[in-house]
């Protein structure tokens, strides 16, 4: 099975064979897991910097917990017709949202999101006050001094080197 999945991912199966296998993957959860793992491996090999873990299971879990509200509740008997109309309207909106979302999810967006997460990570650790001395020592020789003059020094004193 694993070998077949690998061959399928390499695009080496005929169309009818591929279709059969894909149907099998849909039904067999173990095969489906393999299919996901193989894709993750492929992604890691292609972009080792940006893939951290397999998020799909977590995303699915969270989505199941999300309440799905498509129509307003209450006064069901009195305003039955109105509720139906509203829920129809809400469904239309939901369809619109889904259509919009699928339009947004192009192959490029996923790595972009992953990269932004990677880029945000280091910013969470703030430079320690003691290290401000290094910033100060660095600043004097930085070309940023040539452009903005002393304003560039704001980096070295941003929230206090007091007390150290």
């Amino acid at each position: 099975m694993k070998k077949e999945i690998s061959v399928l991912m390499d695009g080496e199966l005929f169309e009818d064979e591929a279709e059969g296998l894909l149907n099998q993957i849909k039904r067999d959860s173990a095969a489906h897991k393999d299919w996901e793992i193989y894709h993750l491996i492929g992604d890691v090999l292609r972009q080792p910097e940006h893939i951290h873990c397999d998020l799909s299971a977590k995303v699915r879990e969270r989505m199941q917990e999300e309440p799905v509200v498509l129509a307003p509740r209450g006064h069901a008997v009195k305003q039955k017709i109105r509720t139906v109309a509203l829920s129809a309207a809400a469904s239309l909106v939901a369809v619109g949202v889904v259509a919009w979302m699928s339009a947004q999810i192009t192959p490029e967006t996923f790595p972009q999101v992953a990269m932004q997460q990677a880029a945000l990570h280091p910013a969470s650790v703030q430079i320690k006050p003691r290290s401000s001395d290094y910033l100060m020592a660095h600043q004097e020789f930085s070309p940023s001094m040539d452009m903005s003059g002393g304003a560039a020094y704001i980096r070295t004193v941003a929230y206090g080197i007091d007390g150290k």
């Binding site: 280091p122 290094y134 910033l135």
Partner: peptide
């Protein structure tokens, strides 16, 4: 370790009794 402030990134490492620090925008 790595730390940052705005455009500045700072990286420390102690190797064989020497402290290395690299700072840059």
């Amino acid at each position: 370790g790595l730390s940052s402030r705005g455009a500045i990134n700072l990286y420390h490492k102690v190797v064989a009794g020497q402290l290395f620090t690299v700072v840059g925008e």
